[in-house]
Design a protein around this nucleic acid. Structure first.
Lengths: 114, 114
DNA sequence: TCGATTGCTACGTTTTGAGTAGCACGGATT
DNA sequence: AATCCGTGCTACTCAAAACGTAGCAATCGA
């Protein structure tokens, strides 16, 4: 399995924060995990279920990354946002609100479905 | 090569807009492409350069998806945001602004780098 | 001590992306 | 007309990432 925590920022080694972020969020399941964590403290297995039974290998890798990025932490009650993570999650809320408008646009190409 | 435009929304077939979006944005290079498009009309090759010489296979697949999602379109001058895409890109601007604060947090774990 | 649950790992298979070459088309030049 | 150039895009092989299942060590309660 890969270890993205080590070789950060795919390409673009400028190290600009947005690049670090886009790189992390662009990995499979990262956004989804971040999104599902809004349910409150969630155990590894519960989170896995929320994420359509994502492979534990990947889930663990992502959680490790998110923890390294100071966005998620593990408490006795389960995985939760850090303060930073909560701020990021709020942006996802905006994204969600926007996506509702976007999805109901006229002639929506069926949201990409064919 | 895959054709995400056909089998949308990895897992979670609820089809909720946010899921469609998280799924699309969670694919490799999608966020980055969306980000780099803020440079204005960009040709396929220029965009490829902006994205650290991403493989044309992937770039094309992503652009096809983004166009299907009504976020990007191809004009004679090059690839540009649609109206919807521009709105989404604005959210990325907020994300970028936030990431600057986030990156300069005290004891930042070096932004995830080890 | 036993069972149940926790986070997490090993490992073989499948899917996805990387990397390079090159195609078909269109417009300008010669 | 023939040539060159840049456009979006595709074919191909190979490497990397993710999947899917099984199962581990640790912990807690009964």
């Amino acid at each position: 399995m890969d270890s993205p925590a080590k070789n950060r920022v795919r390409g673009s080694s400028t190290g600009r924060p947005i690049m670090v972020l886009l790189d992390a969020l662009g990995r499979r399941w990262t956004l989804r995990i971040l999104w599902e964590l809004r349910a409150g403290p969630v155990t590894f297995r519960a989170l896995r279920d929320f994420c359509d039974a994502v492979s534990p290998t990947v889930l663990n890798t992502r959680l490790k990354d998110l923890r390294a990025l100071d966005l998620v932490e593990l408490t006795p009650a389960g995985f939760v946002y850090t303060a930073w993570g909560r701020e990021l999650a709020e942006q996802l809320d905006h994204l969600s609100a926007w996506s509702e408008r976007w999805a109901h646009r006229p002639y929506p190409n069926l949201g990409g479905v064919e």
